[in-house]
Design a protein around this nucleic acid. Sequence first.
DNA 1: TTTTATCTCACGTAAAAGGGTGATTTTTAG
DNA 2: CTAAAAATCACCCTTTTACGTGAGATAAAA
Lengths: 212, 212
Amino acid sequence: MCDPIKLLIVDDHQMIIEGIQSLLEDQLTVKIVGTATNAKLCEQFFLTQTADIVFMDINLPDLSGIDLTALLLKKYPLLNIIALSTFTQGTYVRKMIENGAKGYLLKNASKFEILKAIEVVYSGQKYISPEAQEALNYELNLQNKLPVITKREKEVLVLIIEGLSNIQIAEKLFISIDTVDSHRKNLYSKLNVNNTAMLIGFVNENKYLDYL
Amino acid sequence: MCDPIKLLIVDDHQMIIEGIQSLLEDQLTVKIVGTATNAKLCEQFFLTQTADIVFMDINLPDLSGIDLTALLLKKYPLLNIIALSTFTQGTYVRKMIENGAKGYLLKNASKFEILKAIEVVYSGQKYISPEAQEALNYELNLQNKLPVITKREKEVLVLIIEGLSNIQIAEKLFISIDTVDSHRKNLYSKLNVNNTAMLIGFVNENKYLDYL
DNA sequence: TTTTATCTCACGTAAAAGGGTGATTTTTAG
DNA sequence: CTAAAAATCACCCTTTTACGTGAGATAAAA
């Protein structure tokens, strides 16, 4: 018989760690070799030990799981990281996968699903939970449908949202007021709105700035 | 020796339920008499059974834990409900306490803190975790410092945020444009901003509409 | 009852936004 | 290298905001 799969759990919630341990304690094929409640402890773990699979929470106190994933994979490219999240936010799923995570699990996952994720990822494939996959599809779909704006337009957009007038924006970007006005008009046109409030509403509703 | 304290866990995350069970399984003073992964199942539980303490997650799939707390306490006023949340959002803490919850625990609570919360609440007192208390204080503090606006001003504010012009707002509220303009001016003055974008920015940053 | 807050409306002015059109330069990508 | 996209600027006109000031009507609180 082969060695059990070495699992590291990174999550700042003791309950979650205990929950996973409890769910997996009778499982001989998986062994929890460590737990970390923040990014720093996780990094320290890898200084002396290793793991086959990492369960990575998205929300960590010191560093986001998204960034920690990128950081770890830069050092240890062969690591199998499975995201562990409370919410099904397409943006998170997308970013984790982009950063090299091999799987995405929700915290309401059943024991069966957890084991499946571990096995699938350990065998070299990806495992994304159905809800997360759906959110990801929705996200990618939405992303394709969202209007594309240019770099400069984004700069102007951000400043508009911050409450600057066209004049102030012009001063800040060292361009003419007319140019700012042009960018503003193009934004209105592309995002299909016709005043500042609607512009900001669009950005908020679609979390538009996350895409740029 | 007295009977163990009957505990009901309401949380849609299997890991959390398992985690709490695992943390409390060697504890003879507490017995988990049920678990519910949504509001409906929780209500059904109380049709046939009862509990001394309820661990109530804030984020449930069908109904928020905040609303479910209010609903349960209307039917069973003597219930001891302890909120269970991932995040320390002052608004949540405030609303749960306002709705009659007897305690507030974070999901990164230790076994010791969980037991303490159960005991304190069971003895008739309130238990709010330090972080939650701090957030609550901050919230209440902030709340006192936030400008007060009138009912009508709020109506106008909401419509401004939705992107309506003064004219459209005037039509909607059956008042003159000048009146809308007055309300707008008063809003700007009270919230210390000087254009629409800053107004919306203020509302978003302070989650201002939650207070009204 | 009397004060106070709220809601209402009006007038006027200056600044800014909203909308259209067109044109030049610079960058980027095929 | 060349076509397309992006960024720049200009001018026009209308509408809307922004800001000030004042004031009557009504409802709530002291």
